[in-house]
Design a protein around this nucleic acid. Structure first.
Lengths: 107, 107
DNA sequence: CAAATGCGTAAGTTATGACTTACCGTTAGT
DNA sequence: ACTAACGGTAAGTCATAACTTACGCATTTG
């Protein structure tokens, strides 16, 4: 069910921007927040949410906290999306529609 | 930017459930709403959002509105996710980190 | 050791959006 | 034509979550 978490976490535009800024490499909070339309604490809060969702990881370097993307955090969401392209799906789908028409007729 | 829309639309659990119920095949609103913890109008509203996002399509059959999944609506989101696994990514990432260390040193 | 930098957290405000009930138009059956 | 079933829309309520400012705790630096 982690794909659900990933979805809701990445749904917020500001948080997604934070995430995108990490795409090119690990960065301290300062650097992420620089030039963003929201305050630094806001960025910190987004990073916490991202971290709790397993989408980023954090390491300390002196007084700085360096954040980076955790690709594995996206895996479940990716799998879920992929599951909409399955071969078995179409057969199942047709079957389901058939049973619906049958039900409708018999009613 | 449609992947952003798809993300926010699919982030809601109830709406995602509606969407999932269509996975197995096209269904009228009645059938979708049956057994759901929310009212039928709520389901109608979710369907409208899903439709506006291009994630489902609607066809009329008498007095019923039959909804079905639009796979293409997921394509952009899928592409966005895939872009996190690119080969070029790692090179870029390393470069970005390198430039960061340089900046830090020179300061 | 004092001042400064980096960042997380607490508390309070506010906008948004997911729900409800009530209602209305449209198609189907008798 | 009358009634019932299907489902979209309006209006209002309420919870949530994305922000803000204020603050405090580490680390580094002079």
């Amino acid at each position: 069910m982690a794909y659900a978490t990933a979805l809701s976490v990445l749904a917020d535009p500001t948080r997604r921007e934070v995430f995108e800024r990490l795409r090119a490499g690990a960065r301290p909070v300062n650097a992420i927040a620089a030039g963003m339309p929201v305050s630094r604490p806001a960025v910190s809060q987004h990073l916490k949410v991202l971290k709790d969702a397993g989408l980023v990881e954090e390491r300390s370097e002196g007084v700085r906290r360096i954040y980076s993307v955790r690709r594995e955090g996206l895996a479940e969401l990716r799998d879920w999306l992929d599951s909409f392209w399955g071969d078995a799906l179409d057969a199942l789908k047709l079957e389901a529609e058939r049973s619906y028409r049958a039900k409708k007729r018999s009613k």
